[in-house]
Amino acid sequence: MKDITAKNLTKRFGDFTAVDSISFEVERGEIFGFLGANGAGKTTAMRMLCGLSQPTAGEGYVAGFNIDTEAEKVKAHIGYMSQKFSLYEDLRVWENVRLFAGIYGVRKDLIKPKTEETLAKIDLTAERNTLVKEIPLGWKQKLSFSIATFHNPNIVFLDEPTGGVDPLTRRRFWDMIQEAAEGGMTVFVTTHYMDEAEYCNRVSIMVDGKIEALDTPRNLRKQFAAENMDAVFHQLARKATRIEN
């Protein structure tokens, strides 16, 4: 079953084509790595898939809904975790969970038990009353991920979720991602760490608004005769001709 489908998805701003007719499909339960240099069009593409920006041309389906005409339904069926985690620093740990559960429309009688279950799972029960601004970055990260997936979305979008955290926290976070995927959740993730590209089932690499490569990490390494994903990325990204603007 396809959880994400993009068909010639395009976004233009004036005469600038940020996303240039990209097509791909993501299967249920897949970890899909969405790579590209700064300015390649990743964020714009991701915003369209999340129903936050209307495509100029082409079409896309996420969780079975049209991203253009059913954007609100798309939003209800996905989870989104941004780089900055977007937690409320002045709310307590449990209050953040409560707030987002409400925003995502989780049934009221389910929120309380599910909150306890979630906090226990990420070892934050003892910190339930701590203000979010007082907890370390690694904790914010796992809290943010749990909040983004609290309503059991089919798909979770993770925008550079591991920036700035230490190497152990980074690896523990990938354990969480893999566990979620094993439970059937589809994971769409961007990252600048090329070793993390290896943890994805498949990886796409965007250059100048187009998807220039899409395959399993193993096949990409073979295709580009590269030692690792970093080398694959360098080969492709160096081809970029678009002047950053």
């Binding site: 590209g36 240099a37 700064n38 780089q83 550079e160 920036g163 700035g164 600048h192 090329m194 970093d230 990325f233 360098h234 990204a237 160096r238």
Partner: peptide, 10 residues
């Protein structure tokens, strides 16, 4: 170089 892609970082 935080948040910068690998090629630009290099």
């Amino acid at each position: 170089t935080t948040g910068v892609d690998p090629v630009s970082r290099k």
